[in-house]
Amino acid sequence: MTAQPAGRDTAALRIAVIAALPQTAPPLVEALRALGHHVPVVVGYRRPADWPGHVLGEHDLPPGVDLALPSRPESVAALLHAYAPDAAVSYGYPRKLPAAALSAPRLGTVNCHPSDLPSYRGPNPVGWAVRNGEREIGVTWHRMDAHLDTGAVLARTTIPLDDTMWSFTGVNTRVLQAASPLLPQVLRQLAQGDPGEPQPRREATWAGFFTDDYATVDWSADATHIHTQVRAWNIAGHHPRLQGPVAVIDGTRWKLRRTTLQQPPPGTGRRITCGTGNLWVLAADPLDAA
């Protein structure tokens, strides 16, 4: 389905945003308010004990927008009923929402997924796209149903996945820059009761979290493979159970953050001779206690 430009021709709606990060919720709130809609609440996510960065706080949201932090997904339905939204818009929420929550808004719940569905369903679509050497990724707005990333498609587009994209935050920014202009079309379809188009009948693929087999750097491998491994892990973002990519340098374990295949300026980076070619480590975090 090719997205067509849509004007602000949908009557003002009450729309709940479901998003857990400061890089995702505020841009969605801003985009919806710019279209004349009212956002009464953002449903966020409580900070896990092992979460390494900033999570969404009330100071990230504009005045008049409440922040709700349910203790469990089963609480989301009651929260949404209390705010009585016409629709809910989700992006990057880290837990599967129960059917009662998805059906609480009068017009339903939609999600933005950073892949060309049904390819790369799951929590780590861009990480797997990098790992597989993709040069672009899809951006798909779809209705949410009982299963993860299987709902009918309302709009889609693509964005380049070039070598300048290195961080989870950076990917989210570019995805939302592409997804936000599609919101008028998506909301108009919701208001009109458009069920959307079933996902294409090509084979679906699953993009789960990386596992142990991809977590350790093998310096005897090809330098390009290792470089891709580092980039894929950093774009994938926080893993709830596993550190990666972990490499041993001079007997110390490091979590690699940035590498390059091109020799950097003198005094920059650490050169590693790999099985095929050289790789320069530009940034890494030590994992072993001093």
Rank of each mutant, 00 (worst) to 15 (best):
Y120R: 15
S180D: 09
G7Y: 05
T252D: 10
H238I: 02
P181F: 00
W219N: 11
D50G: 06
G251Q: 00
T109C: 10
A290K: 07
R131W: 12
D116V: 06
W166R: 10
E30M: 12
S90Q: 14
I226Q: 03
W206F: 10
A152I: 02
T216I: 13
V17G: 04
P48H: 03
T109A: 10
S90W: 06
Q192H: 15
G196H: 11
A87C: 06
M165D: 04
I137N: 05
L69C: 03
Q185P: 05
I249W: 12
P105C: 04
R131T: 00
T158Q: 15
V29N: 03
D163L: 13
V217R: 06
T158F: 09
N124G: 02
S115E: 07
R95S: 15
G237S: 06
T268H: 10
D149V: 07
W254D: 11
L56K: 02
Y83G: 08
Y45G: 04
I137M: 13
D145C: 14
R131L: 04
L148Y: 12
P118W: 08
R72D: 14
L97F: 09
A16M: 05
K255F: 08
S167A: 02
V248M: 02
A101T: 07
L256V: 15
E30D: 15
W254A: 04
G277A: 08
V55D: 00
G57K: 02
T216N: 09
T158V: 15
P118I: 03
V248C: 06
V186E: 01
G108V: 05
T140S: 13
I15Q: 04
R202L: 09
R106T: 13
G7F: 05
W206E: 10
R201C: 08
Y93I: 14
Y93S: 14
L32K: 06
I18R: 03
G138Y: 09
V65N: 02
W141V: 03
L69S: 05
H239S: 08
A84G: 01
Y83A: 01
L190C: 08
D163H: 11
Y45I: 10
R47P: 09
T211S: 09
T169P: 11
A49G: 07
V130T: 08
P266M: 14
G267L: 07
A49Q: 15
D250S: 00
H238Y: 05
D213S: 14
R201Y: 10
G251I: 02
T211C: 05
A11K: 02
W206V: 01
A31Y: 00
A82Q: 08
H238T: 12
V39H: 01
L35H: 00
F209N: 12
A6V: 12
L56N: 02
L97R: 07
W51N: 11
S180M: 10
L56G: 06
V55C: 04
A290P: 14
T211N: 04
L242S: 03
P27L: 03
L117N: 05
A31P: 01
A191M: 09
W219P: 14
Y93F: 15
P27W: 01
L79W: 03
E74G: 15
T164G: 12
P266L: 15
D250E: 11
T10G: 10
T268F: 06
M1C: 05
R201P: 00
G64D: 03
S180V: 15
Q263Y: 02
Q192L: 15
Y93L: 14
A178K: 03
P184T: 11
H38S: 09
D250R: 09
P160G: 10
A19F: 11
P245H: 01
D60W: 11
D250F: 00
A221P: 05
V230M: 04
